[in-house]
């Protein structure tokens, strides 16, 4: 059994070059969407069926005088499927198309998925998209085919700043811990690891070093990192109570009486 693998994405050294996006599309033969040009450098906007890597630009730096020591910078982060230990997509998938591979990654089997799209509403990171071309849900495979050929994922291979690092989880954890310590030593107090421990979906095989709170990057914090199944009991209970009251009300209203034109059918 191979060792669990994953990505460590260090957003502190991401320069927003999008080489990861290009390499991912090239290798996985993704056509991509028509670029969306707006007031910023982000023209892919989101992760979806055609974008399995997406460089987020958090560029809403307020206008103002920047002096030494009070500067503000854009934040950039190459986002990707988190390959969660407790994966919400895998939890709800009715066809069992979403499986955990021998590399401990989360993989959608294209031939098994029938395109019900329940996984899309379950994924808390907005990672999965539906492809009208294939009729299936699609997302990062962590280059499952390349892993089988002992190659590293395409995005990690091309990343010029080593913002995206691939390797065994234990190695990546050690590198991330060292990097975080270095940043804290430099006074970057907001720097934090996201998904390194088990507080977010039991741990993420694709985890991040962030330079601000997770919410700033559009990532759920610990309180909001919840599984869909949390609502099972309450929802079923409410539905059951409503159904029981409905049946009771129906019986009360519809029961025949001698006044209503005859004896009850049950006693006829």
């Amino acid at each position: 059994m191979p060792e669990p693998v994953g990505f460590f994405t260090d957003s502190s050294v991401c320069i927003g070059c999008k080489a990861c996006e290009v390499a991912c599309k090239e290798w996985n033969q993704l056509e991509g969407n028509t670029p969306s040009w707006g007031d910023g450098f982000d023209n892919t906007k989101q992760l979806d069926a055609e974008n399995w890597r997406h460089v987020k630009f958090i560029d809403n730096v307020p206008q103002g005088e920047m002096l030494t020591g009070n500067g503000a910078a854009w934040l950039m982060m190459s986002d990707v499927c988190k390959h969660c230990k407790n994966a919400a997509c895998m939890e709800v998938c009715p066809t069992n198309a979403i499986v955990r591979t021998e590399y401990d990654t989360v993989y959608i089997q294209p031939s098994v998925c029938n395109g019900c799209r329940d996984c899309i509403s379950a994924c808390p990171f907005g990672v999965i998209g539906f492809s009208a071309k294939t009729g299936a849900a699609q997302k990062c495979t962590l280059c499952y085919d390349r892993l089988q050929a002992n190659m590293q994922p395409a995005c990690a291979k091309v990343c010029p700043t080593q913002s995206i690092q691939f390797g065994s989880l234990s190695d990546l954890h050690a590198k991330a811990d060292a990097r975080l310590a270095a940043l804290h030593a430099q006074g970057n107090d907001k720097a934090q690891l996201y998904g390194r421990d088990d507080s977010i979906y039991g741990g993420l095989n694709s985890f991040f070093l962030l330079m601000d709170k997770p919410e700033v990057y559009g990532l759920p914090n610990k309180e909001n990192a919840v599984l869909p199944s949390r609502n099972n009991f309450k929802s079923y209970l409410a539905a059951f109570v409503a159904a029981a009251i409905g049946v009771f009300a129906g019986v009360k209203a519809l029961s025949g009486t001698p006044e209503s034109g005859g004896s009850a059918a049950g006693s006829a």
Binding site: S121, C123, P124, P228, N231, N232, K234, S235, L237, A238
Partner: peptide
């Protein structure tokens, strides 16, 4: 209940949709 058992806003914010 299918809607509520998700992470979609509105749907997962209420347990009353099945009822």
């Amino acid at each position: 209940v299918v809607l509520s058992v998700s992470n979609q806003w509105v749907w997962s914010d209420s347990w009353a949709i099945g009822a």
